[in-house]
């Protein structure tokens, strides 16, 4: 079980996160639901920064905006985040499970000429190449078409099946149908939505209430 407790964050006088605790089990996907500006990205940033590098549990962070240099090729972008060399990267991306991402044939294509979906895959690859146990994903479906979304969902399923855990921040309903647990982030606090969802209350109504 991966657990982080007592997370608080303020910007000036405004308290964004108020003493939040979160835990996720292996093979489990946890969703963070919230309106725009509720602090979802802030929560994931805090989790990423609080996680100690060098700890036994490897954590990979996939931000909403792709952290890629457009001028460089995918292989050079990925090299920034791993100790592997070019040929090792190419090898890792050509065999399962990373081959599922489908970027092994595009390693020398400049990132600036890639579609949004391909960029997201490269972004994912730069994280997954280090075999993390926990994945933090911030709005993974932002600016993706239906096919790209399905591909990403399929890969997330394979990752969970391999024993990995995912914490996803989003406001897309199909992601929460995929998650084992969904929390509502509102007024800086996390609330478990499973009870409300079991009563048939939709996520939109949860956000409005």
């Amino acid at each position: 079980m991966y657990k982080l407790e007592h997370i608080s964050k303020s910007y000036g006088d405004k308290e964004i996160l108020k003493d939040i605790s979160i835990e996720v089990a292996p093979g489990e996907a946890v969703g963070i639901l919230g309106t725009n500006g509720s602090g979802k990205s802030t929560l994931l940033n805090c989790i990423a920064k609080l996680h100690k590098t060098g700890s036994d549990t490897k954590l990979g962070y996939v931000p909403q905006e792709n952290p890629l240099f457009d001028e460089l090729k995918p292989v050079d972008n990925i090299r920034m985040w791993t100790d592997l060399n070019r040929s090792q990267i190419a090898m890792a991306l050509s065999i399962p499970p990373l081959s599922e991402l489908g970027i092994s044939n595009f390693l020398d294509t400049p990132v600036k000429s890639m579609s949004g979906g391909m960029k997201k895959r490269v972004s994912l690859a730069s994280v997954l190449i280090n075999c993390p146990q926990i994945l933090l994903m911030d709005e993974p479906f932002a600016a993706l078409d239906l096919i790209a979304k399905q591909d990403i969902l399929r890969y997330m399923g394979a990752f969970l099946g391999g024993g990995g855990s995912i914490i996803i921040a989003s406001h897309e309903e199909e992601i929460f149908n995929f998650c084992n647990k969904v929390y509502l982030l509102k007024d800086g606090k996390l609330t478990d939505t499973n009870t409300l969802a079991a009563q048939g209350i939709s996520y939109i109504d949860m956000l409005r209430s």
């Binding site: 931000p63 952290p67 890629l68 240099f69």
Partner: peptide, 10 residues
Amino acid sequence: NKAMQTKFST
């Protein structure tokens, strides 16, 4: 970009 700077800080 902002995402890169966030990942740098980690």
